[in-house]
Write a protein that binds this DNA or RNA. Structure first.
Length: 424
RNA sequence: GUGGGUAUAGCUCAGCAGGUUAGAGCGCCAGGUUGUGGCCCUGGAGGUCGCCGGUUCGAUCCCGGCUACUCACCCCA
């Protein structure tokens, strides 16, 4: 019986890891500049944390959690998103005692029990950022800028930023009422899904993709018309900063998020060419979550980027977006004493910081040269008996075919100079 | 959870209106040069034709079920 990887998971093979490392490097560099520090939290938490944090009635909690009971009967769950765990750690370790806001980022696997499709997997990687302890609208804007800068740094184009404010619990009471009044009038004209939503979470109706519902929703009151003074003012400032900084965005008063903890600013970044799963980043403010998880009432903002989707979008936009490093040299030998010498040379060169390959299968020189070519080695170092007698090696520059005799003790210097000259 | 598509070599895919030895290109290995890659030529290795069952003298091919992959819906990064 042959065992395959679990549904919705992916093996990232050596030829793929280069681009992951490329994106990860961009992320770490960006976070350094913006002053966000890495935090690593467990991939599983008490189920309760997600239920309370993300919201009981959300799809994520209702039907997508990898929840299980451990041997002692505790209910645990693989994290479906990153924010809840980070906030839990923030509260648990009293990070509120530090100077605020605390700015954190994370990078790692998340798990949701969903049916896989393009850009959606059961284990997927997210990069996310959280700033806890400030209500400054500029932080909201920072949260929108960070992913934009990240995409730019990676070479991504053609993404769209949508922004909205969904207010605070205070203004939502009024809005909910107005919305229900409006929807109630023609409740039976909505799709079955939305009829259910109207009862449980009317905001979600705005998000429905059914044409019938969209038409009905068109005339619905907008949340942005019901914001309380504080929320309206906050949103206004967010927009002003965005304009001031020349950030391209569109207002989408119907943008809602699938997690219950969001308040005020929410945003989503999409790549239209990606297909059904076109959101590559999303986030917003969550002013109530820290308290919900047991900490002091502290405001916070965050966002998350799906790395598989970002990579998908990058792959789509033709052209190589990252440089694959190549070996400096391939040391070819003929077995016997020449192999003994080759082993020595290889070890010495590696100790001097060069990336060096050699033959481990006792193959012909021709086959070794072929390998050198395949591996993209800059040079081939050939060591045969006649060379050994003269205390030299032949160094062949693979791109040009030029060959040069180099003294045994000069090889490292020669190769290093060659690398400087022809670039890494 | 719902609906559609697909499943043949490591990869991309042909194929057979059901007939006995299942093919190509690429990749891999070797030879064409007792010690030299890329181009070319020759040869080789590599397949339970996804799994189980049915129809049939006979199934990789037709039918059913299962599984996986895939796309879309729901939802989401």
């Amino acid at each position: 019986m042959n065992i395959q990887r679990p549904r919705g998971t992916n093996d990232i093979l050596p030829e793929e890891t280069g681009k992951w490392q490329f994106v990860e490097a961009k992320i770490r560099e960006l976070c350094r500049r913006y002053g966000y520090q890495e935090i690593r939290t467990p991939v599983f938490e008490h189920t309760e944390l997600f239920v309370r944090g993300i919201g009981e009635a959300t799809d994520i909690v209702e039907k997508e959690m990898y929840a299980f009971t451990d041997r002692s009967g505790r209910s645990l769950a693989l994290r479906p998103e990153g924010t809840a765990g980070v906030v839990r750690a923030f509260v648990e370790h009293r990070l509120d005692a530090r100077s605020l806001p605390v700015k954190l980022y994370y990078l790692g696997p998340m798990f949701r029990y969903e049916k896989p499709q393009a850009g959606r997997y059961r284990q997927f990687a997210q990069f996310g950022v959280e700033a806890i302890g400030s209500i400054d609208p500029f932080l909201d804007v920072e949260m929108i800028m960070l992913p934009i800068e990240l995409y730019r740094a990676c070479g991504l184009d053609g993404f769209q930023v949508q922004v909205n404010s969904i207010g605070c619990p205070k203004c939502r009471v009024q809005y909910r009422e107005a919305l229900l009044k409006h929807l109630g009038a023609n409740v039976d004209q909505f799709c079955p899904n939305c009829r259910r939503r109207i009862e449980r979470n009317p905001l979600r109706v705005l998000d429905c993709k059914e044409e019938k519902c969209r038409a009905l929703v068109g005339q619905v009151p907008l949340i942005t018309d019901y914001l309380c003074l504080e929320c309206a003012d906050h949103f206004q400032q967010v927009k002003e900063y965005l304009d001031q900084l020349g950030i391209d965005y569109v207002l989408n008063p119907q943008l809602v998020r699938g997690l219950d903890y969001y308040t005020k600013t929410v945003f989503e970044i999409t790549v239209p060419t990606l297909g059904a799963q076109n959101a590559i980043g999303a986030g917003g403010r969550y002013d109530g979550l820290v308290e919900e998880v047991g900490g002091k009432p502290l405001p916070a903002v965050g966002y998350a980027v799906g790395l598989e989707r970002l990579l998908l979008a990058l792959d789509q936009q033709a052209g190589r977006y990252y440089e694959e490093p190549r070996p400096d040299a391939y040391v070819a030998h003929f077995g016997g004493v020449t192999k003994a010498k080759a082993v020595e040379i290889v070890t010495d060169l590696r100790r001097r910081g060069l990336w060096v390959e050699m033959d481990y299968l006792g193959r012909s020189l021709k086959a070794q040269m072929k390998s050198a070519d395949k591996l993209g080695c800059r040079s081939a170092v050939i060591i045969g008996e006649s060379e050994l007698e003269r205390q030299i090696v032949k160094v062949r520059h693979m791109a040009t075919g030029d060959e040069q005799d180099v003294k045994l003790d000069q090889i490292a210097a020669y190769l290093t100079a060659d690398r400087e000259e022809h670039g890494a």
